[in-house]
């Protein structure tokens, strides 16, 4: 794993994809829509934050399961650092979403289900950090927080399937708001959107890999473990 983290090809790929996102996201044609106008380009920068957050939280979940399975302290390190960067992306997604919502929906917080859902996901992972901070012993901390991570992750299932449908969403493809469905189907936008998701996720993994390698060397709790 350390070998893969040290390799640069995927970091160069991240840089390439993100440069493409900046250039293509600002210059390529986008659908002309009311209310949104040019802000529709936020889709390339705001939404990938959420995708990146969910992907990083999923990686964190996988390593928590692995920790309980084989008890390697380095798996715990992977779990916590991916969760930390997931939180970073999540907070950025929330802030950018509030800015965008303020301009297009009229206020930063509209009780929109997707917004609420992301806020809950953030609360869960902040609770995860607080739980970790309250346990001094490293192996005990790893075990207990892994259990919480797994339990909390699966308790978010209703968020994904139901709560968004409890009320009408202002986000696309949830009914209401016809104008917004258009960009869901726009192929031109997908050409930038998917690379953007990949680029931001890889950037997140890169940052977490830096912290993991740093702690493997300098953190006395981890520097005897190997990946």
């Amino acid at each position: 794993m350390v070998k893969l983290m040290q390799q640069s090809w995927w970091k160069l790929l991240a840089i390439f994809l993100l440069c493409y996102t900046v250039v293509g996201g600002l210059l390529f044609a986008v659908p002309r829509l009311n209310i949104l106008n040019e802000t529709i380009r936020n889709l390339y920068y705001h939404v990938p934050m959420w995708f990146g957050m969910i992907i990083l939280f999923t990686v964190s979940l996988v390593y928590s399961i692995l920790y309980l399975y084989r008890g390697k302290l380095s798996d715990d390190l992977m779990a916590v650092e991916t969760a930390n960067v997931g939180l970073l992306l999540g907070v950025l997604g929330l802030l950018t979403g509030m800015i965008w919502a303020n301009y297009t929906w009229g206020s930063p917080w509209n009780g929109d289900p997707k917004q609420n859902m992301s806020a809950i996901a953030l609360l869960i992972y902040f609770a995860y950090s607080i739980l970790r901070a309250s346990i001094p012993d490293p192996t005990k901390r790893a075990r207990i927080s892994a259990v919480y991570n797994i339990f909390a992750f699966f308790s978010m299932i209703p968020l994904l399937f139901v709560v968004p449908r409890l009320t009408d969403s202002l986000h696309p493809s949830n009914g209401g708001n016809n104008g917004f469905v258009v960009y869901d189907l726009d192929n031109q936008m997908r050409l930038v959107f998917y690379p953007a998701v990949m680029g931001f996720t890889l950037l997140g993994l890169w940052i977490s890999s830096l912290r993991i390698r740093l702690r493997l060397i300098f953190d006395p709790n981890y520097n005897h473990s190997s990946l």
Binding site: M117, I120, L123, I124, A127, I130, L131, Y148, F151, A152, S155, M156, P158, L159, V162, V163, L166
Partner: peptide, 13 residues
């Protein structure tokens, strides 16, 4: 702290 974030979606249901 640990239980409220987990229970919110369930309370909503």
């Amino acid at each position: 702290i640990l239980s409220f974030p987990i229970i919110i979606p369930i309370i909503a249901l």
